[in-house]
């Protein structure tokens, strides 16, 4: 089943075109890796899919399960199952991670027509997932991402992904700032969430991550377009040769 369908997408910021005619099809159960040089528009693409304000979509469309995603508010998209693990997660002082998770989870459950979790149910679930990601309990009592190390912030993103049970997960450089052990833990957390109903878009610069999370497809983005698509071996090729050959193609 086609989950995400992007057709000839054009996106600008301050009248500068950043995404310049991008196509992408993602089916349920698939994992797509997107690679590409700095500034090629990877994060921009993930923001536009999630509905961040400040971007102007000047052409094309994004369909999610056949519905026009661009018409929806960001929180509606979240409730429909779109999840974005941010390259730079923000800090929210004074709001404990626990409280944030519970408020968000219940908001999504409500929007999906499911009952809210009771406090004990919720606590049980969070603790389970936190444990599997090696997240200490007292981190959950701290303000959202406040004073978290780079690796802790990334693990917190995966914790949320596991809790919210999205159907499309976009992971923007989830591997940046992770040490070897954390990378393994995060990757196995992500792999544990792979399922026939769920698709993932993994944005990364490194083959290293794709060694753990093996993609079905690899796309190379350059200057706001997908310039080449292939199987997992494309990532190895990139690692060996760099982006040079594609820069000219774009």
């Amino acid at each position: 089943m086609t989950l995400l369908e992007i057709r000839d997408l054009h996106v600008g910021v301050d009248s500068r075109e950043i995404i310049r005619g991008l196509d992408l099809m993602v089916n349920a159960g698939e994992v797509h890796a997107i690679m590409g040089p700095n500034g090629s528009g990877k994060s921009t693409l993930s923001h536009v899919i999630a509905g961040k304000p400040g971007y102007e979509v000047t052409g094309g469309q994004i369909l999610f399960r056949g519905e026009d995603l661009l018409e929806m508010e960001p929180n509606e998209r979240a409730a429909k199952g779109v999840f974005l693990a941010f390259q730079y997660p923000v800090e929210i002082p004074g709001v404990t991670t626990m409280n944030f998770l519970r408020t968000a989870l219940n908001a999504q459950r409500k929007a999906r027509g499911r009952g809210e979790f009771s406090t004990p149910e919720f606590l049980k679930k969070v603790r389970e997932v936190a444990e599997s990601l090696n997240i200490p309990r007292d981190m959950l009592k701290r303000g959202v991402n406040v004073g978290f190390s780079g690796g802790e912030k990334k693990r917190n993103e995966i914790l949320q992904m596991a809790l919210f049970e999205p159907s499309l997960c976009i992971l923007d450089e989830i591997d940046s700032g992770l040490d070897i052990d954390a990378l393994r833990i995060v990757a196995s957390g992500i792999n544990g969430l792979r399922s026939p109903e769920r698709a993932m878009i993994v944005i990364t610069h490194y083959q290293r991550l794709l060694h753990y999370i093996v993609p079905d497809y690899v796309h190379v983005m350059s200057k706001g377009r997908v310039v080449k698509s292939g199987g997992k071996e494309l990532a190895l090729e990139l690692e060996a040769c760099g982006y040079g050959q594609f820069e000219t193609a774009a």
């Binding site: 961040k52 941010f86 997660p89 408020t103 968000a104």
Partner: peptide, 13 residues
């Protein structure tokens, strides 16, 4: 704006 968007992305109104 970034904090607001983060919250919205997580399903909050």
């Amino acid at each position: 704006e970034d904090v607001l968007f983060y919250c919205l992305q997580r399903g909050l109104s």
